Amino acid sequence: MRGAKSNGYGMFILFLLTGAVFGGILGEVISHSDIAAGFAPYLVKTFLVLDVPPVTINLYVIRFMAGFALQPNLISILGMVVAFLLYRRL
């Protein structure tokens, strides 16, 4: 029964992040490969989705800098789709 077992949102986010990271790593490997030299630039082209510029908090003893940028490529998006499909099978 599918409804009786719930993995929760945390596991879903973990699957998506893992798929995106593995997809990004695979994209980097493909970009440096001679086999996929013809179409590799299209697969590893990044798309800027979210960009939060760095914010600096100076406490005079410690300085914190934090920022966030989300720039997926096509392979990492494909990795997220595969991770979603694997999550659905659990």
Rank of each mutant, 00 (worst) to 15 (best):
M65E: 13
A37V: 10
V44P: 04
H32A: 05
P72E: 00
L48E: 14
Y42T: 12
F39W: 15
L90G: 07
L17N: 11
P53A: 03
N73P: 08
R2S: 14
Y60N: 15
M11G: 08
I25A: 09
T56P: 12
H32Y: 04
V21L: 14
Q71F: 15
I75M: 06
R63Y: 07
P41Q: 02
I77Q: 01
P54E: 05
I62E: 05
V55L: 07
I25K: 05
F15Y: 04
N58S: 08
R88A: 10
L78C: 13
M65T: 12
G38H: 06
L17A: 13
M80T: 09
P41R: 03
G79N: 07
N58D: 14
F84S: 08
V61S: 15
I35G: 04
I35L: 08
L70E: 02
N7W: 14
F15S: 00
F64C: 10
R89E: 14
R88I: 11
G23W: 00
A66F: 09
L90D: 04
F64N: 08
G79S: 14
K45Y: 03
A37C: 15
L16Y: 09
G67N: 01
D51I: 10
G23P: 02
G3Q: 01
G79F: 06
G8Y: 06
F68S: 09
A83F: 06
I30P: 15
G27T: 12
V52Y: 12
Y42V: 13
E28C: 15
E28M: 13
A37G: 10
L43V: 06
V49M: 11
V29C: 06
I25Y: 13
L70A: 14
L70Y: 09
N58E: 10
G27I: 13
P41I: 06
R89C: 14
I35K: 05
L17G: 11
N73F: 03
K5T: 12
Y87E: 03
E28S: 11
V21D: 01
L78V: 08
P53C: 01
V52H: 12
V21S: 04
S76R: 01
L74H: 03
L86C: 11
I77S: 03
N73M: 04
V29K: 04
L85A: 11
L90T: 06
R88C: 12
V52E: 07
G24I: 01
F64T: 08
R88S: 15
I75S: 02
K45D: 05
A36N: 00
E28D: 09
Q71Y: 09
V52A: 13
